[in-house]
Measured scan of single mutants.
Amino acid sequence: TEIRININGVTIHVRDASEELKKLIEHLLRLGADEKEIREVLHRWEK
């Protein structure tokens, strides 16, 4: 699944996002995570 996240005008594009990762990101956004925090989570997730 491919997702695009727009945070304050900055688009983060994620290829091959699992449903689990998608739910995690949606949850973090609801909690008010910023772009830097989302990128950090994505970076750690890929490892």
Rank of each mutant, 00 (worst) to 15 (best):
W45E: 06
V14C: 04
L24D: 05
K47Q: 14
K23F: 10
E19W: 07
L21Q: 03
H43W: 02
A33K: 07
T11L: 10
E46N: 07
N6T: 12
I5L: 06
I12W: 00
E37C: 06
T1Q: 13
E26T: 08
I12Q: 01
R44L: 15
E40Y: 02
D16G: 15
T11W: 01
E19Y: 06
R30T: 14
G32H: 04
R30Y: 11
I12G: 02
D34F: 03
D34K: 07
K22Y: 13
G9C: 03
R30E: 13
N8P: 03
G9K: 05
L21F: 07
E20S: 09
I25A: 01
G32R: 03
E35H: 08
E40C: 05
R30P: 02
E35T: 07
I3G: 04
R15N: 14
E40S: 04
L29D: 02
R44S: 14
K22F: 15
S18L: 04
I7P: 03
L28T: 01
D16N: 13
L21D: 01
R39H: 15
A33P: 02
D34A: 07
K22M: 15
H13C: 10
E35I: 10
D34S: 15
I5P: 01
L42R: 01
L42M: 05
L31S: 13
E20Y: 04
V41A: 14
V41K: 04
N8Y: 00
H13E: 09
E2I: 07
E20F: 05
L24S: 06
G9F: 01
G32T: 01
V41H: 08
L24N: 08
L29Q: 09
A33R: 05
L28D: 00
R15D: 12
R15L: 13
E26M: 08
V10N: 10
D34T: 15
D34H: 07
I25M: 07
R15Q: 11
H27L: 11
I25L: 14
E35Y: 13
E46G: 11
I7L: 10
E46K: 05
W45V: 07
L31R: 12
E35F: 10
A33V: 12
L24F: 13
H27A: 12
W45R: 02
A17E: 05
I3P: 03
I25V: 11
R4K: 13
I5Q: 02
I25F: 03
I7M: 09
L21V: 06
E35K: 02
I7G: 04
I5R: 01
D34P: 09
E35G: 06
E26G: 03
H27Y: 07
E46L: 13
H43A: 10
L42W: 00
K22Q: 13
L24R: 11
I38K: 00
N8C: 04
K36P: 05
D16S: 13
A33F: 08
N6I: 12
